[in-house]
């Protein structure tokens, strides 16, 4: 494989391999201030890590779409049965 990536400036000491393991922590806000600044400085100069961050962010939003059709809706008969149990529990006598 050949390198087609521009070299980062020497003051960027954060390996991309480390950055990609911190993406969820970064999005959760669980990275302390000084390290967060380093991550953001790295993002400013690294298109690869920026892609990974944007992609994770994107897939979180896409995941919200899965709710629409992946499970059966509660069937009326079952709903009635559960509600009947609730009503019955209301009058334990």
């Amino acid at each position: 494989m050949t390198t087609n990536v521009p070299q980062p400036p020497p003051e960027d000491d954060l390996p991309c391999a480390v950055f990609v393991e911190m993406v969820t922590d970064y999005l959760e806000g669980s990275i302390p201030g000084d390290l967060r600044v380093r991550l953001e400085q790295h993002l400013a100069i690294c298109p690869g890590c920026t892609s990974v961050l944007d992609q994770i962010d994107r897939l979180i939003r896409l995941a919200g779409r899965i709710t629409e059709d992946d499970v059966d809706a509660l069937q009326p008969a079952q709903r009635d049965e559960i509600l009947a149990a609730f009503r019955q529990a209301r009058h334990p006598d």
């Binding site: 494989m1 390996p15 991309c16 391999a17 690869g48 892609s51 994107r58």
Partner: peptide, 20 residues
Amino acid sequence: LTAPAADPTGHWVSFPLAWE
């Protein structure tokens, strides 16, 4: 990229496809 490659700092060999 990792040691003992030219760049030991763990930067991308090639960027991931920017499908976003």
